[in-house]
Write a protein that binds this DNA or RNA. Structure first.
Lengths: 159, 159
DNA sequence: GTGCTTGCAAAATGTTTGCAAGACG
DNA sequence: CGTCTTGCAAACATTTTGCAAGCAC
């Protein structure tokens, strides 16, 4: 992996890399898979979707891709490293583009209203790299979640 | 890293505090709730259970507590801060005793075999405290998850 | 063709809920 | 009593799967 390119890869680059990774596994970049990826590319950085949200978004673009295919594709894209699977404390998972696997961002989650904010932390990443090297793990993702009550929810809550 | 008195509270302390917290909310420490807590108290530190695992464990102790009650109790105990809710990338949540809320521990998760390891990190905690103070959140939990492939799974995987 | 992929509907999980009966202060 | 709790079964939400049909190399 190149250390000089510290920022996210371009869409074209990601696409090429992805196609290759799929080919290597004897899989295809079908129209459905492309469309799903497109949704994620068009998502503001730091944003994330659940399977249901993805499906709704496809629908609103008049793309009839079944929910089952959405689920299957999400799983597939996670397995090739194109998407990152996030779970906040909800009943479903969220997915976002792995824009920059070298510098994964983290989340602040309000337990009151479910709002999320993103932040990066080179310190945490460094700590993760060192720790897993020491323990002889091959690092694949670092997810730090800070749960709290945002200012609005502190006021709301009678607690 | 220091084994000081400021570490986890004793079971008796936790119990008292908990009873009080429940009372304050007009709730009861029923036999079922006590039994469930007992299971967690008897769990090796760092260990965690899913709702189903808890239910099985109760059953094996000849305690007929319904699965619904297990779920309800888990939720309740989380809401009063007695338990911590964890979600690894599985289809169910895990719960563990909040032994020391001041120094939450974190997890290394093998994506291959699902094995988990615990570790503490004062640095991460400090970072969380500072960041959330700055953003005016009331911090409730810090969860760092490091995903990777353990040595065994690296060997196994043909990848 | 062969084998990957899709859509559909059904199934499988994990979790929550309505309700009547029970327990407790 | 009134209210909190429980167990049961049904409901619910999310995700997975079997299968037949479709598509790509």
């Amino acid at each position: 992996m190149t250390t000089e390119q510290t920022h996210a890869q371009s869409n074209a680059e990601m696409r090429d890399k992805l196609t290759q990774q799929l080919r290597d596994r004897g899989l295809r970049l079908t129209p459905q898979r492309e469309k799903i990826l497109e949704v994620f590319f068009n998502l503001p950085e730091g944003d994330h979707l659940s399977a249901e949200e993805l499906h709704q978004r496809l629908k609103s673009h008049h793309l009839d891709i079944s929910l089952a295919t959405s689920y299957r594709t999400l799983k597939l894209l996670v397995s090739v490293g194109a998407l990152r699977e996030l779970d906040f404390s909800e009943d479903h998972k969220h997915y976002e583009l792995s824009r920059n696997p070298e510098a994964p961002h983290h989340h602040i989650i309000c337990s009151g209203c479910g709002k999320t904010e993103e932040f990066e932390s080179p310190e945490v990443l460094q700590l993760a790299v060192n720790l897993l090297r020491e323990k002889r793990y091959k690092l694949t993702d670092v997810q730090l979640k800070l749960y709290g009550l945002c200012q609005d929810c502190c006021d709301d809550e009678p607690d």
